[in-house]
Amino acid sequence: MNNSDEILIEIKDLKKYFPIKNNFIENKKKVVKAVDGVSLQIRKGETFGLVGESGCGKSTLGRSITRLYDITSGDIFFQGDNIAKLNKKDMKAYYRKMQIIFQDPYSSLNPNMNVEELIDEPLALYTNLTKKERIEKIQHLLEMVGLKKDDMEKFPYEFSGGQRQRIGIARAISIEPEFILCDEPISALDVSIQAQVVNMLEDLQEKLGLTYLFVAHDLSMVRHISDRIGVMYLGKIVEIAKSNDLYNKPLHPYTKGLLSAIPVTDPKKARETQIEIIKGDIPSPIDIPTGCRFHTRCPYATEKCKSIEPEMKEVNSEHFVACHLY
C-alpha cells in the first residue's frame, strides 16, 4: 500500500462531452455528458480505484486523463504540468509516462503481429535501445508477467485470454511508465484467472514503483487492490475515501446501494444482511436530472436534492462525499 503524499496526477473540473450525430451531422445543442466536472488527485505509487454502474463515465474519465480522448474543458496536471490542451506532438513525452491496459486483450493486440513485434513496437518508438537490447528486454518482460521466452514467436490467437492480458501488461510496462490506466483489465477474464492478474499487477507496482488508476465493476476486487476509491455516478464523483473506510462506512446512498449488491458467500450472513437495492435505471447522460443527479433513485431525496447540486465535502479524514445528508 502507498504512503506517499506526492501528487502525480491532479484533474480539475474535467469535462468530456460527446456531440450527438443525426445522419452523420453533429447536433451541438445535444451532447452526452460522459464526464461532467470531475476533480480528483492521484498520488504517486498508489492505486486509485474507480467504480460505478455501466455508463457512468469511468472509462471515459480514464481515457480523458491519459489524453486518449481530447477533453471538452478542465485541467489535467501530470507532475505539475498541465497536459489538457497539448497537441499529439507535444504529448509524445507524456505518452511514454502514461500507458493503458485495456479490457479486451484480444481486440487491443494486433492479430497480425507476433509477441516480439507487439512488445517491440513501443520500445522502438520510445527508446534508443538496439535491436539486440530490445529482444533481451522483451524476454525479461515476458518472464516478469509469467510467460516464456519461447512465446515471442507466437501470435495472439495462440494464447488464452489471461495470457493475452499478460502480453498487454508486458507491452504497457515495456517503456517504464510512471502511470498506468487499468481499464477494466480483468472483467473479460475467467474468475480463476482474475486473482492471478491482480496479484501480478500488485507485484509489478511494488517492483517498478507504478501508479494505477484501476477502473472496474468488481467491487470486491477493487477493494483488494486499491488504496483509495472514487465512486462515480452519471459523470460525477459522488464519494472518495480510503478503501477500508469506503467499504466499512459508506456515506453516499448510491455507494451503499452498490456495496449491498456484492454477493455474500456465507448463506447465514446473507440472510442477515440488509440489501439496499438501487431502484430504477440510470438516467440518460443526454438529459441529466437537476440538482443531485441521483435524486431520481434515492430513497432519502428531498426538495433540496431536486434543485441544488451538492458540493463535495470532507466529512471524515480523507473521506469526501457530495450529498445533502452531510
Rank of each mutant, 00 (worst) to 15 (best):
E309S: 06
D36H: 13
V315Y: 13
F102R: 06
R271Q: 14
D81W: 10
F155N: 00
L142F: 06
S4H: 13
G162E: 14
T72L: 06
L258R: 08
K207Q: 11
I20V: 13
K269T: 10
V222T: 00
Q163S: 04
K236E: 14
V264G: 03
P289R: 00
L109P: 02
R297E: 13
K30G: 10
D150L: 10
S39H: 11
E303D: 09
I180H: 14
N27A: 03
Q103P: 03
L210V: 02
E309L: 02
P285C: 04
H319G: 00
E121I: 02
K242M: 13
M144Y: 13
Y106A: 08
P289A: 11
Y17M: 05
T66W: 09
M1Q: 10
S220L: 02
T302R: 13
E136V: 10
L129H: 03
A124Q: 07
R293D: 02
D151E: 07
F77K: 14
Y69N: 13
T290C: 10
H319Q: 01
I100K: 01
T72C: 03
I83R: 01
E158H: 13
H319W: 00
S54R: 00
I101S: 05
I175A: 09
Q41N: 15
H324T: 01
R223E: 12
L14T: 06
S187N: 08
E158I: 06
Y157R: 15
E309G: 07
P310E: 11
M1H: 07
T290F: 04
D104V: 12
K85M: 11
Q274L: 09
L109F: 01
H217W: 06
F78G: 00
R63K: 11
S64I: 12
N112V: 06
